[in-house]
Design a protein around this nucleic acid. Structure first.
Length: 318
DNA sequence: GCGTCCAGGTCTACC
DNA sequence: GGTAGACCTGGACGC
């Protein structure tokens, strides 16, 4: 448990449209930085590592509905200097996509029979960047070959057993372990303590590779979508699907579940064998939405219930 | 209660 | 370059 008693405030003025609630607390239940974060009455308490320091965050929106700022109270163990405050500001500005312009995506979505149905519910929702490469890679690996409930149990167990707890503002938020922590744990121990199965050896190898030095999410973003994906796929246990989840440049991560969803949306029926149809459905999505494929995926899976009603089809929820 | 099947992929060996 | 088979665990299902 790390007590974070020093506090400073950052205010971000995001590019409009920007819906704070939808962006930091996605309708599909995706967390911003940690599965242990808390969202109550329009406020989010979360935590992550920035520049090797644990930082607790309390975020809320302020101002008129169409001109709202993001107000962030940041908590650290020791009083930060000006350089660190600027680092936190820049990091959060990027991770919260405060400078992102969605004009081209909305222009595409308004002309698309599927996406146009999502705009009413999700207008102003931005995709956000995960806390760090290792955190999102852990999520991707625990999602492999497991129902969502089991994936959540594996990830929660990793955080409870090996993660850190940030205590600030009368809240406690667990954050995923650092790669250097898991690089020194045996796969056997990890497997039995966190019920990870064969994924344990991937995670230990992955932790070793990242802790020895690997481009950060920020650096991968600068490489461009294809080059970043090729680089990410060199990581142990990370294949095509997981790389599309991790890639900060975006991807179209189709697995068996989403193959059912997009199969219905594209062809009107669920594929008979989802696993065999993944390639075809992925190709269709990328052809249809191009550079905005990730955003299209993101808007569809966060609006399944409403899409089901509007299109008159049953889309399997997560 | 017990056995079998299989799930929101990836890797490896083999052809 | 393509593909079958192995890989953990736990819930669903049939008996």
């Amino acid at each position: 448990m790390t007590k974070l008693n020093s506090r400073f405030r950052i205010v971000l003025n995001p590019k409009r449209p920007y819906d704070f609630g939808l962006t930091v607390h996605k309708p599909a239940g995706w967390s911003l930085f940690s599965s242990f974060e808390v969202y109550e009455n329009g406020k989010l308490w979360t935590a992550l590592h920035i520049g090797n320091r644990l930082v607790g965050l309390k975020l809320h929106a302020s101002g008129r509905r169409n001109a709202r700022d993001i107000v962030i109270d940041a908590f650290t163990e020791k009083k930060p200097g000006k350089v660190f405050v600027n680092l936190v500001r820049g990091t959060l500005r990027a991770k919260l996509s405060a400078d992102e312009d969605l004009k081209d995506f909305y222009s595409l979505a308004k002309r698309d029979k599927i996406l146009t149905n999502t705009l009413k519910d999700l207008y102003g929702m931005h995709s956000t960047e995960d806390a760090d490469l290792f955190s999102i890679a852990l999520l991707a690996i625990t999602l492999q070959m497991a129902p969502l409930k089991r994936s959540e149990e594996m990830l929660d167990s990793l955080i409870r057993n090996y993660g850190e707890v940030a205590e600030f503002d009368d809240r406690k938020v667990g954050v995923p372990p650092l790669p250097q922590t898991l690089a020194n744990i045996s796969a056997k121990e990890l497997k039995s303590r966190c019920k990870l199965g064969y994924r344990a050896r991937y995670i230990v190898k992955l932790a070793a590779v990242i802790s020895r030095g690997f481009p950060s999410l920020e650096e991968l973003r600068c490489l461009g979508q294809d080059e970043a994906k090729n680089k990410i796929m060199t990581l142990p246990g990370i294949g095509d699907y997981s790389a599309d989840i991790i890639n900060p440049g975006g991807g179209f991560p189709i697995d068996v579940w989403s193959a059912d969803v997009f199969g219905k949306l594209f062809y009107g029926k669920e594929p008979k064998n989802g696993r065999k149809e993944i390639k075809r459905i992925k190709k269709e999505g990328v052809k249809r939405w191009g550079l905005w494929s990730w955003y299209a995926f993101f808007y569809v899976v966060n609006d399944l219930e409403n899409l089901s009603k509007r299109l008159g089809i049953t889309l399997r929820l997560q």
